[in-house]
Amino acid sequence: MILLISSKYDVSTNNVIKWLNYYGINFLRLNTEDFNSLNHFSLSNTSSKLKVNNVDLDSITSVWHRRGRLRHVPNSLNGLGKVTDYLKKEEDSLVKSIETYLKNTRKYIGSYTSEVENYKLEHLMMARECNLNIPNSMITTNKKELIDFYNTHDQIISKDLRYSINIKTEKICINSIGTFKVTNDLIKGLEDQFAPIYVQEYIEKEFEIRVFYFENKMFAMGIFSQQDEQTQVDYRNYNNQVPNRCVPISLPTDIEKKLLEFTKKVKLNTGSIDLIYSTDERYVFLEVNPMGQFDWVSKNCNYYIEKSIAKEFLEVCN
C-alpha cells in the first residue's frame, strides 16, 4: 500500500490516483486539511510502530508526500493564540520525526521538511556548485547598497526569499504578485534601512523553462512569455485570454546532468525547477520549488506525468 499525503484540492493527486486505481494499486490518502488521529508512534529498543487513523502504517511500502503536512492537533485547539503556536511547534517536531522514520525505512518521495526549508539562497549556492549559471543576486537592508545594485544593472527584479506573502487578517488579505521589476520610484519610497530585500539582475530571456522532476525522470517545458507584456517578468502572472505558448523541451544532456546533480545535492527527490534561456544563449538557474505543480506541464506537453508517477509506485508494489 502507498501512503499519499496531499491536499484535498490538489488536482495532480487526483490524477495520479486515477492511474493507481487503473493499475489496481492500493493507497491511503491523508489530506492536510483534516485532523488525522494519531493512534501511536511508538519507539522501543527493538521496534518502531506507527498507526494513523486506525491504519497500521507497517503495511505502507512507499510514501508520496505531495503537499503540506499532516495535522495532529484537534481543530478545537486552533485559535488559542500563543498556546496554539506552542502546540503547532510541538506538532511540527513530531511530523518531521515521523517523516525521518518513514524515510529511513521505505521509499519516500517528496518532503515536508524540505518544503519548509525552501531557502532560495542556499539553492542558488548549490546550483552554482553544480556549474549552473545563476543571476547576480543581492540581499540588503540598506538603501544605498540597493541603489548601487540598481545602477550597476540594466534592470533588476525582486522576489520573496522563501515563501510568497500570504497574510490574511479579518479585514484584509495581502498577496504576493510574484516576481516584479524594481523601479526607481519603488526605491525612492524606502527608508534608509529596511527589512531584507532580495534583488536580482533582470535577465533578458528568449524563453523560460519549467522542469518537473520525479526521482531521476525530468519533464521540461518551454514557456514563451516574452511577447506578452502581462507575463514578461514572471510567467506566473498568468494571462488567461491567450495562454503563453508552452511546448516540450529536450534539455541538452549536460544541463540535465547538472540539474540532476543539483537535485541530489539539495536532497529533493521531486520538485519543479525554473530556468531561463537568456537572449545571450545561456541556461540560467532561478529556483526550485519542492512541491511545484506539474499538471499543466503534463497537459501542455502530453507527457502523462501522472501515469509515470503511478508506474514508479507500481514497481515498488511488485
Binding site: D160, I172, C173, I174, N175, S176, V182, G189, L190, F194
Partner: peptide, 16 residues
C-alpha cells in the same frame, strides 16, 4: 511600510 521589503509594496491587498 517604508521599511518593509519591496514585495510588500507590490503585494495586492483585498478585503477579506
Amino acid at each position: 511600510i517604508e521599511q518593509l521589503p519591496l514585495t510588500f509594496h507590490k503585494a495586492t491587498i483585498t478585503e477579506t
